[in-house]
Simulated scan of single mutants.
Amino acid sequence: MKVIETHLKGCFVIEPTVYKDERGTFMESFNHQKFEEALGAKVNFVQDNESVSKKGVVRALHMQKAPYSQAKLVRVVKGRVLDVAVDYRKDSPTFGQHFSIELSRENGKQLFIPRNFLHGFSTLEDDTIFNYKCDNYYQTGSELGVIFNDETLGIDWKLNESEIILSEKDRKLACLDKTISFFN
């Protein structure tokens, strides 16, 4: 397993070792001991989530507020996504900056997103299966969201505007500058 820290401290790209032969491929998608050794931190995942989406779906940008914050390890089981993490740590020098990466079944890459980061993704293929582990349980009413197309974030979701599919909830999210009061 190869672990690469992004420019957002604590946010890592994980590249599992993929073994290929005439039968196909094999990879260890998660090993708790190796994962913690590679990150140099304790993480206890307690919940797995999975979504299936058609091309053009944008599920973004969400997080859970403390004390229900969640670290996540995300990967694609089938298809392709553009995965995005936004630093929402108030005192971080990279507050409001984002990191994006294409995750696919083919490249096998995963992204570890620490607590207090906004997270989202856009699906780049039909029938994309997206899986993520969380280190805290989902708590209704503690979710915070920022609109996916906030100009201050400048995220290129790799989709044409006409093909973007949003939930009603995500259409109503505020811009980043309107959520800052969360810290006060």
Rank of each mutant, 00 (worst) to 15 (best):
I14C: 13
I14E: 06
I14K: 14
E15A: 01
E15N: 00
T17C: 15
T17Q: 15
V18L: 13
V18P: 10
Y19P: 08
Y19G: 05
D21N: 12
E22G: 09
E22N: 13
R23G: 05
F26G: 11
F26S: 15
M27I: 13
M27P: 15
M27C: 14
E28R: 11
S29A: 06
S29G: 03
F30V: 12
N31F: 11
N31T: 08
H32Q: 09
H32S: 12
H32K: 08
Q33T: 07
K34D: 02
K34M: 03
F35I: 12
E37H: 13
A38T: 11
L39R: 07
A41Y: 04
A41Q: 05
K42H: 08
N44K: 07
F45S: 05
V46G: 06
E50L: 10
S51P: 02
S51G: 04
V52D: 08
S53Y: 13
K55F: 14
G56F: 15
V57L: 11
V57E: 04
V57F: 05
V58Y: 05
V58R: 01
V58C: 01
R59G: 04
R59D: 02
L61G: 08
L61T: 10
H62Y: 07
H62P: 02
M63N: 11
M63H: 11
K65R: 14
K65S: 15
Y68M: 07
S69F: 07
S69D: 09
S69R: 08
S69K: 14
Q70K: 07
Q70S: 06
K72A: 08
L73R: 15
V76Y: 11
V76I: 13
V77L: 06
V77H: 08
G79Y: 01
R80M: 11
V84Q: 01
D91H: 09
S92Y: 15
S92T: 07
T94Y: 06
G96W: 07
Q97S: 12
Q97R: 12
Q97L: 10
Q97E: 15
H98W: 11
F99N: 00
S100Y: 11
I101T: 10
E102H: 01
S104G: 06
S104I: 03
S104A: 05
S104L: 02
R105Y: 12
R105F: 13
E106C: 00
N107Q: 15
N107T: 12
G108T: 00
G108L: 01
G108P: 04
Q110P: 07
Q110R: 03
Q110A: 07
Q110T: 09
I113S: 13
P114D: 01
R115K: 05
F117T: 02
L118T: 01
L118K: 01
L118H: 00
G120N: 09
F121Y: 06
F121S: 09
F121P: 04
S122C: 03
T123V: 05
L124F: 10
E125W: 04
E125I: 02
D126Y: 09
D126S: 10
D127C: 00
D127Y: 03
T128E: 05
